[in-house]
Structures are given as structure tokens and as C-alpha cells.
Amino acid sequence: MAYVINGTEVEHDEEGYLTDINQWNPELALEIAKGQQLEMNDERWEVVNFLRNYYDEYQVAPAIRVLTKALAKTMGPEKSSNKYLYELFPYGPAKQACMIAGLPKPTGCV
């Protein structure tokens, strides 16, 4: 199973998570989001970029509770509530946003 970007195949698992996180690029993010019936906007990019930075620093995708807490600190309370995040990523912010960010499925996320 693979996403196809400009004729290049990028492999993913049965749920849609990239097999190799190093193959991620912003164009691919748009493609993954499309498959999730989501259009990328500034708000979604903020969360996706945040997740990528977090992973880069800690080598782990944050659990949702950790994500909201950390977002509250950097982006303020109105951009960190569960409600806000679920509006952006209806099938679960940690899950869906991580997939778009090219990260592995968050540990402990079923």
C-alpha cells in the first residue's frame, strides 16, 4: 500500500501511517489529509507542525493529554481544548494528525 506523489510511491501500513517517517514532505501531508477527507488549513498545519517538532525532539508522538497540555502552553488555551482539536481532526487528533504528520501511531493509541 502506498501514497503516490508526483509518480513516486511512498509506502504506508494498512491504516495509512507511513512505513518510513523520513519520506514525509508537506505535499505528502496534503495527500494523506485528502485520504482522511480533511483539507489542510493554517490551524491543522499548526498542530501537524507541532507534532513533528515534538517527535523530532523526543522521538515519540505525544498522547492526546500530553498534546493538549503542550499546545496550551505554546498556542494558548483556545487552541488546545479537546473540542477544538476534535473539530480539526474528527477521528482523533493524536491519531489523525500524527498520520498526516508522517509519525507512527501514538503509543497506547488504540
Binding site: 515519540v60 505525544p62 503542550a70
Partner: peptide, 12 residues
């Protein structure tokens, strides 16, 4: 290298 993940434990 999973050692950076120890630094995330505080968030948890």
C-alpha cells in the same frame, strides 16, 4: 535511539 524519550516523561 529512544533515549530522548526519557526527556518527554515530565509531560506525562
Amino acid at each position: 535511539n529512544f533515549s530522548p524519550t526519557f526527556r518527554a516523561l515530565g509531560d506525562y
